[in-house]
Computed example of a mutant assay.
Amino acid sequence: MRFFKYIFWILYRVWFYILVALPIIVLMPILIVSILKESWYPFFFKLARFWAKFILIGMGFNIKIQREQIPELSKSYMFVANHTSMTDIMLMLVAVKNPFVFVGKKELAKIPLFGFFYKRTSILVDRSNPKSRQAVYLRVQKRLKQGLSICIFPEGGVPDESVILDEFKDGAFRMAINHGIPIVPLTFADNKKRFSYTFFSGGPGQMRVKIHRFIKTEDLNIKDTQLLKENTHNLIFNELQIFDKNPKATLSAE
């Protein structure tokens, strides 16, 4: 019986990469055109949302979304969530309809096919380089002026699977305060169970996400970064514990 589980997990992982690559290959000409000008990014974002939903549904994930508050399309936000899986990027794209730009580590740009578009549409950061962090701030400022939002996974990476939620870095919260945009916390309840970085694990099933009420920043200053970070961390951590105690609890479907 264990042998067949290993076979399933191998095929399941291979299937994931097929689903990642297939829409990119089919839509390659349109995707390339959509990234030629920054002003065309909202169109690229719509294609990215289709790509993400195609993958999640193809993997057998039943997406459930609960929204305590709905972002306005005319405003900019800082979207943050816990990071446990390769599917976090896809789920964020499906859960959020506002065009946003990812801020992420530069290593993701090395992934074949995906990395080509990721490098040209996201804001890459080298956390070991102070000049890189300054450049990120300026690029975020430019994107916000274009009416876009920003998305950061504030743990700064994927923690060990025994860790419920790692400590948050300051970047997302410092930028949100500096630009006066609300924090929108999201809790991803099942991504670790469905498709973690452990190769022999995962499977189809419910994939729940909760979009919490926004946290305002316009009355805060840079000295409030730590408190804002801790409040957001506690909110997501507590929600993860609630989901953990109710693994079969359902949310409204997308």
Score class of each variant (00 low, 15 high):
Y41A: 08
V80T: 11
G115Q: 08
F102T: 13
L93Y: 12
E107A: 08
E68L: 12
R49I: 07
A109C: 03
A109K: 14
S74P: 06
L56R: 05
A48D: 01
F54M: 03
I57Q: 09
G60C: 03
P99V: 07
F45Q: 09
I57N: 09
N62K: 14
A95P: 06
Q69F: 06
K105T: 13
I70K: 10
V96S: 01
I65E: 06
N98D: 09
T87C: 06
S85K: 02
E72Q: 14
D88H: 02
I57G: 01
F43R: 14
P42F: 11
K106C: 00
V96T: 13
V96P: 08
V101C: 06
L47D: 00
L108C: 06
K106G: 03
Q66Y: 12
Q66H: 15
K106Y: 02
V101Q: 05
T87A: 11
L73H: 14
A81E: 01
F45M: 00
R49F: 03
V94S: 04
V103Y: 06
F102N: 04
D88Y: 05
M92Y: 04
A109D: 01
F114I: 15
G60L: 02
K110R: 14
M78L: 12
F114E: 00
P99C: 02
F54S: 12
E107G: 10
E68S: 10
I70C: 00
L91T: 14
Q69C: 05
V96F: 00
N62D: 15
A109H: 00
A48M: 09
G58P: 12
F100Q: 03
N82W: 02
I111H: 00
W51I: 13
V96K: 01
I55A: 07
Y41T: 13
R49Q: 14
M59L: 15
N82H: 04
A52R: 09
F79H: 07
G60K: 08
W51E: 00
L113M: 11
S74V: 11
L108G: 03
F54W: 15
T87R: 00
E72Y: 10
P71C: 12
R67L: 08
K64N: 13
L113S: 03
F54P: 12
F44C: 02
K110C: 05
L56M: 09
V103L: 05
P71N: 08
F44Q: 01
K75V: 05
N62V: 14
K105A: 07
F100L: 09
L56P: 07
M59C: 11
M59Y: 07
S74H: 13
N82F: 03
A109S: 15
M90F: 15
K105V: 12
H83D: 07
Q66A: 13
P99Q: 04
A81W: 03
T87N: 05
K75M: 10
F116I: 12
P42H: 10
A95F: 07
E72F: 07
